[in-house]
Structure formats: C-alpha cells, structure tokens
Design a protein around this nucleic acid. Structure first.
Lengths: 114, 114
DNA sequence: GGAGCATATACTCGTCAAGGTATATACAGG
DNA sequence: CCTGTATATACCTTGACGAGTATATGCTCC
C-alpha cells in the first residue's frame, strides 16, 4: 500500500474522503452515511490515516476524522503535466465535460458558458 | 478494472502515460525507455487503451500510441472539491510542496517564488 | 512465400488486498 | 464495577491483477 494512487483506487476510501470534504465526521457517522460495516470503515480509515489523507482527534469514545490536504496535492502535482498536455486539446475537453454534464444533470436547460 | 483510479494505480502504467505526455511512441520505444519486457508493455497498453487513456495508429508493423485527455480530466474533475478544501490550508500546501521539491531536486539552490 | 521483425495474446503462478466474522480495547454513566 | 456504546484489531478466505514464459498474428522485404 505504497502510493497515493493505490490508496484512492479503493472506491470506499474515495467515498470516505468525499464525505470528509464538507466537515469532520466520527466513525459511526461515516458508517451510517455510507452504509458500510464498521470494521470496514475502521480499516479504511487506518489506511487513509497511515497514508496521511486523514487525521483523527479523540472525543470521548468517538474519534473524529478530518481531511489532510497533502497527499491529494501530490496527486494534483502529478496531474500537472497532463493538464498542460490537454490544454492543447481544449475542444475535446469541452465536448467531454459537456457530455458528463448532460449525463448527470436531470433538469437543467442552460448551456455551459464559454 | 473499472475506474480511472484503478488504472493509474499501477506504476508501470503511470510511467507509460508520463512517457506519452511529450509525444507519441511505438511499443518498442516504450519498451526500451522503460526497460520493461514487451508483453508487459503490450498488456498495460491494452488496459490503457480500453480505458480510453491512449489510442493507437498503425504504422506498418509498428503501432504508435498517443495520449487521450479525457480520463485524466475525469480525475481532475474528481479532485476539484478537494482543491477547494485545501485552498483554505494554503500554508500547509506551501510547506508540503517545498518539501517535495527539496527531496527530489539535486543541485538547485533557488527558492520557490511565491 | 519464407525469413525476420514488431506486437498481441494465452496460460500459469504467486501475491496481496478487501470483505466477513469474531473479538479486543476503551470510555461513559448509573 | 457493570453495562452499553464506540472503535480498533485479528484471522481467514477469496478474488483479482501483474509477472513471466511461450506462442500466435501480422506486416515487410527479398
């Protein structure tokens, strides 16, 4: 379980990270919101903690987990050269984002502004 | 082998992608530059191709592989909320990037400009 | 059309990580 | 202290993916 990439390859871990973006959560809250068994949550949190994605503070019996930015920033850094690459392909980008947009939204009618 | 994340979890695949950022390459060129056995290269290219990270054009017996931007853009999109999160933690960011910088460079002496 | 090169695929094997279940640790409150 | 709650860990099993080796496909040129 070395790299940032392997850590976020796991869907449940990504779900946990996404949950924590809004605010810190206890293990139980994560468990309930994501509908996953408690040992699973704890184990993934352990992985995330040891990789520096999250940190925890103790609150009585609860442990509150919060995001730490560094590892994902590393990912961002890795992505940088590719961003430079695809800015040469901006048309395809627009088309792609547009397609993603169209497939996820339900009722909007307005077009993406350029 | 579903998600973008699983695809780039593999170090050899990331190496191939990084190679292709500069320009398209034949299988043999990838093989030589990365010092990996040919079937390994072909198999990883297959995965990358099927996931839409690369596309190939035929040139006689060679196949030239080139990057396609979409999947990595997806990654970029996923990263967006976290970027918003950590812009609140800019100090830690600076410190972290600085540390990464220091650990990878060998002879530079100049400081990162803010 | 046969030789040689470039690339793809088939198959086997080992490894490792995720899930499930059970259990341990730790804290709170009566 | 004992019960209940919250979280962590241990152990086992299973499945998937990557490496390696061998072989197939396909193209070129003579």
């Amino acid at each position: 379980m070395e790299s940032v990439f392997e850590i976020i390859a796991e869907p449940n871990r990504r779900a946990i990270l996404s949950l924590l973006v809004s605010s810190q959560q206890s293990v139980g809250e994560i468990e309930r919101q994501l509908r996953m068994p408690q040992p699973t949550v704890s184990k993934h949190l352990r992985v995330l903690r040891e990789a520096g994605f999250v940190e925890s503070t103790v609150d009585a019996q609860r442990r509150l987990y919060r995001l730490k930015p560094e590892p994902l920033q590393e990912l961002d850094v890795w992505l940088a050269p590719f961003r430079r690459f695809w800015s040469a392909h901006l048309d395809a980008l627009e088309r792609h984002l547009d397609r993603m947009d169209r497939s996820t939204r339900t009722k909007r009618k307005t077009r993406r502004s350029r």
